[in-house]
Design a protein around this nucleic acid. Structure first.
Lengths: 235, 235
DNA sequence: GCAAAAGTGTTTATGATACACCCATGC
DNA sequence: GCATGGGTGTATCATAAACACTTTTGC
């Protein structure tokens, strides 16, 4: 065991440690996945946990979240939004640790996670087959999932889970997975096309063993316009 | 100037200080008000600020918010919900301070604020006539207002701003103030009564110089039922 | 030619909006 | 009796929901 490092930073009152943790969602063919890291230090050594770590004193919370995400999973330039701050007193057995949780959405095609990640330490898990998680990370993950389900109803969020160009069937599938219910194809298309939130491209799917579907892209401008005036995305 | 206190608490890495700040909303006859405290210490001495203060190492974030609220304004047992955590690096000129912001809703009749408050230090301000605020509290206040406006659309929130028994006109007025637009009386009543979120009482208004209105109370059970299934309160 | 998914319209039901007058009460 | 806000209904319009078949393509 190595000797203890010096403790140079001194305060009049005790201070909680401050961390960030990130719930990274991605969309598989069939379901929502979340990225977990296997801990190689105590406490909870060997257990799976959300990516995250201590906030440096010279970086903002979001900067800390992005830095940890890149260090631990290789992911960068992704959609990231603050979720909630968890401050239960005993959530970390070592000492008082307050964590600011974020959630992130990525598309599996666009970001090469495996290449920059030690595969032994990071992996995607289906939300239905989660291992035991360290700390209160199961609680955080549940909160993130609920937020995503709730948010999708009144904001055009979620496109970050898809590749840049996608079929309407992919988009519908994404909503079905997030909302956990089936949607009617014709009504879904009417609604999505009607609110002009996607733009038709002149490309179609390739290498499929059936009629190839048209590809669409997300329309940034419509997004902006609709986001502001608190619109209704009930589908 | 007093001598510096001892700094007994020592850490390997520098730590941010952790505070809570609370945006307390109340409903006046005419408009939304927010409670501010006049600071009697540096920095920003004499300026108005949100109630709040440092989180003790042995209390949760919500406990800290409730404690500060009671100490500074006398308010207790009120609706309180976490808003957002602000971690910009220079938001406090002294050192790195991360603050977990909450917002609260109170009804002016039910809670005697003045009695337990040093009137020189705490006061209600109209949202349209705010003084310059200390720190980044103007940003926090704006975020709280937006959250309230957004939340009211899809959750039956806001009843905390009214007394236990209220008239439908008071309820409508509350929504008009929060949403900042006029609502049609007949349509409003149809909608509110239709979703069975309020219960008729057998009491009526007193001491009014016109026909007395029936009093209603908020229906907890309907609230629970509707809250869960993410319902739509667009009015 | 068949398997597999793409693509497309109409009808019905429900909820949102617009709108104006009589009623009860206190003074 | 008049001023003040309380209380009520209907017609129209817009959006949501339900529902099935033809088309295209690869194999």
């Amino acid at each position: 065991m190595r000797s203890k490092p010096p403790k140079k930073f001194q305060y009049e009152y005790p201070r909680a440690a401050l961390t960030v943790d990130i719930v990274v969602f991605a969309l598989d063919e069939e379901e929502l996945k979340v990225m977990l890291i296997q801990r190689d230090l105590q406490p909870y050594q060997g257990q799976w946990a959300l990516p995250g770590g201590f906030v440096h004193v010279d970086e903002t919370l979001e900067e800390a979240a992005r830095r940890e995400l890149q260090e631990e999973t290789g992911l960068k330039d992704i959609f990231l939004e603050q979720l909630f701050t968890f401050g239960e007193i005993d959530r970390d057995p070592r000492e008082r640790v307050v964590t600011v949780a974020y959630y992130a959405l990525v598309n599996l095609e666009g970001h090469d996670v495996q290449a920059s990640t030690d595969a032994r330490n990071a992996a995607w898990f289906s939300l239905n087959e989660l291992p035991d998680l360290a700390f209160d990370h199961a609680t955080i993950l549940k909160a993130a999932h609920e937020r995503l389900r709730g948010k999708v109803r009144y904001q055009p969020i979620g496109f970050e889970l898809l590749p840049e160009k996608f079929t309407l069937t992919q988009l519908q599938h994404m909503y079905e997975v997030i909302l956990d219910r089936e949607l009617d194809k014709r009504n879904f298309r009417k609604k999505v096309l009607g609110m002009e939130i996607v733009q038709e491209t002149d490309e179609i799917e390739k290498d499929v063993a059936h009629r190839a579907a048209r590809l669409y892209r997300f329309d940034e401008k419509a997004y902006e316009r609709l986001s502001k005036q608190g619109f209704n995305f009930e589908i």
